[in-house]
């Protein structure tokens, strides 16, 4: 299917790509997510904010299929979604974990080729996918160098490119800019914006408010295992009763100022 055809299909598809309803997950007696509700619209970048221990990573892990046994339902493009038990469902997802999930002793090209294969990219499309990944990461010139020789920023870019190798509809990004320099961060932002322009839907968690404010179309704020507010920055500010405030002030108003040391 060509790009135009894909765009047509997406245009005809429901506006809500992912819908999470009343999702609850516990680690033993500790409730990490308590009845969370979330809608992610097709083609948007949805920021997921929350203090430490708010349940962001657990919610993301449930969506990614890394945690099963939760209560509640998930729908993807209007259909029931159970990625923990359905390999085909997982192919619609891409994950960019917070860790640099790369093999240091493989080259950038080898990392991309390996994950392309694991993510089900057909053999005839793999070279093109690898090339696109190298371009997205800005590593065409260093394609055959081992990852262990890369800077932190280069690894972060490659980390992102691998998540998008198979062209997933929904890309889950867990703090993808931790520890990178301004140049690499800027490159990552441009890459994410390019992905959105190509029709991808992104869920983006970060502790950097200015990043979220700059990148995201909407923001969901999690607090104590629940999604307490969703909307644009302006909508959230209005809801918090501080229309002139920036996202950080809104965030502190919604989640409180006490320290959070939970994992």
């Amino acid at each position: 299917m060509g790009v135009r055809g894909l765009a047509t299909v997406r245009a005809m598809a429901p506006a809500t790509l992912l819908e999470v309803e009343d999702l609850t997950y516990s680690y033993g007696d500790r409730h990490a997510v308590r009845g969370a509700n979330l809608q992610c619209h097709r083609g948007e970048i949805l920021g997921l904010l929350g203090p430490n221990g708010a349940g962001k990573t657990t919610l993301l892990s449930c969506v990614a299929g890394l945690l099963g046994g939760f209560r509640g339902t998930m729908q993807f493009a209007g259909a029931p979604f159970r990625p923990a038990h359905d390999a085909a469902a997982r192919l619609q997802l891409g994950l960019v974990p917070q860790e640099l999930a790369l093999y240091d002793d493989l080259s950038a090209r080898e990392n991309l080729a390996f994950f392309a294969r694991m993510q089900g990219v057909p053999a005839e499309r793999r070279p093109a996918a690898v090339r696109r990944g190298l371009e997205l990461a800005g590593l065409v010139d260093r394609a055959d160098d081992r990852v262990r020789t890369f800077s932190g920023g280069m690894k972060r870019r490659l980390n992102l490119a691998i998540g998008d190798l198979h062209g997933p509809e929904l890309l889950l990004l867990d703090e993808p800019t931790v520890g990178v320099d301004p140049q690499s961060r800027n490159h990552l932002f441009e890459s994410l914006q390019a992905l959105r322009a190509a029709g991808r839907t992104l869920v983006y968690t970060s502790h950097y408010m200015e990043e979220v404010q700059r990148l995201c179309d909407r923001v969901a704020v999690m607090h104590d295992g629940r999604v307490v507010a969703v909307g644009t920055t302006a909508e959230l500010a209005a809801r918090a009763g501080t229309p002139e405030a920036n996202l950080e002030q809104v965030f502190l108003t919604l989640t409180g100022r006490s320290l959070r040391d939970d994992a």
């Binding site: 390999a87 997982r90 790369l102 089900g120």
Partner: peptide
């Protein structure tokens, strides 16, 4: 190192 999470999210049988 996180590669396991990435592989588990891939379409490959677990």
């Amino acid at each position: 190192q996180g590669t396991l999470r990435r592989l588990l999210v891939s379409g490959a049988p677990r």
